[in-house]
Design a protein around this nucleic acid. Structure first.
Lengths: 333, 333
DNA sequence: TCCGTTCGTGTAATCGTTTCCATATGCTGC
DNA sequence: GCAGCATATGGAAACGATTACACGAACGGA
């Protein structure tokens, strides 16, 4: 493949000049400019980003480590991150941690070795030595969707506390009392926060949060199904199942359907995370929607700031309740 | 950040020796080995993949350009590609063409400049000069899911012909005659093939394929909705709507629901592409499932072969019909 | 004792860029 | 006619790794 030297030879100038026109430095004659462009064209020259990065210490690449690409929430997050990064002239390399700490580590190692200019991480449960190194080394890093306790790293995430309160209130207004919650992993900030918000909301609405009505899953479909099954097997099963993310809601839905139960008459269902197809199931599922695109965009903006060594604040965006029919019809309707 | 020189100094050996232990070359003493490892540990040294790539002419990186990350089909494709690549020691950079040729071009340019070792492309409609260059230059390239006519590039894709025949047969057995097809872009191989298969299947089953019952969308939700609306507005609307991909099926579903029509009594629905939530809508949607994971895995295997300059054959895997209830109940049930 | 191997190591060239510095050229103003 | 300056250009040194090559030491067999 043609290199910059070939271009220089073909154009009859030095490599320095070629480099200058390619980076459109002002100090180059119009004549040289045209000759170089012609040569580039003729030789189908493509600058070698590897060599460039070596010299400039910048790859114009961002790393993004997400929990699970098959989870629609992360898919829209990834999409938004990519769009915003592209607009700023950056390429993003996505790593799929699959919610496994060792795979997350694999990707931070790989991305660090590839010398990405900055790293966006949706941290999995554990705080691994590697990410610790990473923050110590002070490489540009921002957490997305989730945070890790005790680490001084800016984060961009949604807060569902208010929406969860509204949801519990909505459910109570519908006349239900026994609400069960399929929570996320205790180690994940999102898991903890949602559980806490749920418990608070129950109390605030004068509802009893029974211990057997709260169980932690792992944000994957199978765990949602298993936990829903256990809830339903209880001597006094809940009237409502609230799933901590869309995948676990899918699992719960599976289990409810498999038992031939009707929603919301036999058991009602609600979910954290809103996804496109929720409106298409029968009945449409009441859910809490996170501003995923906005989170993605804000995260890369924050990261770019950090890359330029500007201080950045964490950002927290509110999630919002979208009421559909899976918990029952409201009276006014 | 510590470089190989620092490690060498700290260990009291030359950079060559450090490099040798890092690449575990056999010709190095046990003593040097331990000293180097200690130094690596102490300095938290991370090899610079950029420099390494410059020297070795290999990035151990694969590029993947997909149509739309928000389309679950591409999401599972991407996931499978990433898994298989990681197992082989490669990182993959995903480019989201968003079905736009210019954005596809943006990514092939970027990935080429980053000197990826190989490229996996799900080509959008047009055959752009850039991908043409790409095949001429002979860089390792394989098409995934779709092909481009007249280009000698190996491809890995699914063939739905057989499944479409079975679907039309199934629908006919249910007593329907008027089937409409929301086709994909004529310029996409997947679009063309599915349309052709549909037309053939109609003929083979003695059904009339009316011209007004076939219209091409762009594989996105909105077009599915619009076309479904036009079908439903026809003086004699179809009894069945068959969508050429899952997003257009979603659009059609929207439109059907918006009109308060019941499935399958007022109008039946079927889709190419099977996605997880199809089983959860009411009624569950009959669909043609593509072996997406398998496609992804086979594609990277093929690409790795090409990278090693071994000849590869195109692979075609059959899609399969999964009958649910959106076209009506079968008599035997 | 000496030659030929083997083994471990170090020196230095190299990959394709960017960029600092020096230099050549032409022009202005005295 | 020449100092002073701006402008365009080229030469060459980085960047951080890999690796061909050479070299010295140790060792065995003659």
């Amino acid at each position: 493949m043609a290199g910059i030297k070939d271009v220089a030879a073909h154009a009859g100038v030095s490599v320095a000049t070629v480099s200058r026109v390619l980076n459109d430095s002002p100090k180059v004659s119009q004549e040289a400019r045209t000759k170089v462009h012609a040569a580039v064209e003729a030789l189908r020259y493509r600058p070698n980003a590897v060599a460039r990065s070596l010299r400039t210490e910048a790859t114009h690449t961002l790393g993004l480590i997400i929990g699970d690409i098959l989870n629609p929430f992360f898919a829209v997050l990834a999409r938004a991150v990519e769009d915003e990064a592209r607009a700023a002239g950056y390429t993003v390399v996505i790593g799929n941690a699959d919610e496994r700490p060792e795979q997350q580590d694999h990707y931070v190692r790989t991305l660090l070795e590839h010398r990405v200019d900055g790293l966006l991480i949706c941290p999995t449960a554990e705080i691994t030595p590697l990410v610790e190194d990473c923050v110590e080394a002070g490489g540009p890093l921002v957490f997305l969707d989730r945070t890790l306790p005790g680490l001084n790293v800016p984060s961009v995430r949604a807060d569902g506390t208010r929406a969860i309160h509204e949801l519990v209130e909505h459910i109570r207004d519908l006349g239900h009392r026994r609400i069960a919650f399929i929570s996320g992993p205790e180690l994940l900030s999102t898991g903890r926060e949602r559980t806490q918000a749920f418990l608070d909301a129950m109390r605030a609405n004068g509802l009893e949060a029974r211990e057997e009505y709260v169980e932690a899953g792992d944000f994957q479909e199978a765990s949602g199904r298993g936990i829903a099954a256990r809830f339903l097997d209880l001597p006094e099963p809940p009237e409502v199942i609230f799933a901590g993310d869309n995948l676990m809601a899918l699992g719960a839905l599976d289990e409810i359907r498999a038992r031939g139960l009707r929603i919301p008459d036999d058991v009602a269902l609600a979910s954290f995370d809103d996804v496109a197809w929720f409106v298409h199931v029968d009945p449409p599922i009441t859910a809490i929607a996170q501003p995923a695109e906005e989170l993605g965009r804000r995260a890369v903006r924050a990261l770019l700031e950090r890359i330029q060594h500007r201080p950045v604040e964490s950002v927290v965006l509110p999630a919002r309740l979208v009421i559909r029919r899976s918990c029952g019809e409201t009276e006014t309707r």
